[in-house]
Amino acid sequence: MVKPVIEVDGLGYAYPDGTWALRGLSLAVAAGSRLALLGPNGAGKSTLLLHLNGILLPASGRVRVLGTGVDKDTCLEIRRRVGLVFQDPDDQVFAPTVWEDVAFGPTNLGLPVDEVARRVEAALEAVGAVDLARRAPHRLSVGQKKRVAIAGVLAMRPDVILLDEPTASLDHAGSRAVLAILDRLNRQGTTLVMATHDVDLAAEWADTVAVMAGGRLVARGGPALLRDEALLARAGLRPPRVAEVFRRARGWRPRPCPMTVGQAVEALEALLAPGTAAGWNAGGKASE
């Protein structure tokens, strides 16, 4: 495995009302990976992200990010190097204009004015929001606000970006735009960790999947994990829709079900290609 940029070991955390959100969770995230943190509501995904950014500190266990242990002395440095995009952009984008909001992070880093301006322009460019620079955030659509929230994090030039349900409440075009930005960032070497309960999104997007339930890590591995129906059921999740279609087609077994649209298309093209005998008959008996 590539050297981990995030190492979580036996992490436990209880909220002030005594509810345990994380119970001895351990996880490693490789540099440059796209990890989907999958789990139902209340699994502890958002709480884990807050620990990885140094906003919450471990009640038990330890968290190391980019080789630095997260504690009260290092949390400011961790926040500089690990960006966190919150689920609701209205929780994050607060300044009177988009430009000022994106400048908030770099200004907090104490950068010179020129450098702040350069970073803001580059970040807005990266998310295609240059034309929004002078707009007031409360006049933007949810998709635009989400892109601005990502720009606010990009302007800090983090090595790792954590995203809490980045496509929640976005329409198809908004989701596509956000995912395209994430793809580009990942190609440039940024490690991405996305908390989501959208199994289809995880199947399409992630190269690593970590399944959480009840504040614990249930499993970690490649996207193939998402074929494990028993595991997903244990975590209160369902299989990807595409896999569900192939699973129900009795003649497809015992071959592994495609999980993404791309894999499904490949499988169907192979099945329907002239001269091949890979198809199955209506009775569920695969052709030889």
Binding site: L76, N108, G110
Partner: peptide, 13 residues
């Protein structure tokens, strides 16, 4: 929390 995540608390210039 979102402000903390973007460095609120750093001795900014």
């Amino acid at each position: 929390r979102a402000m903390l995540a973007r460095g609120l608390g750093h001795p900014a210039r």
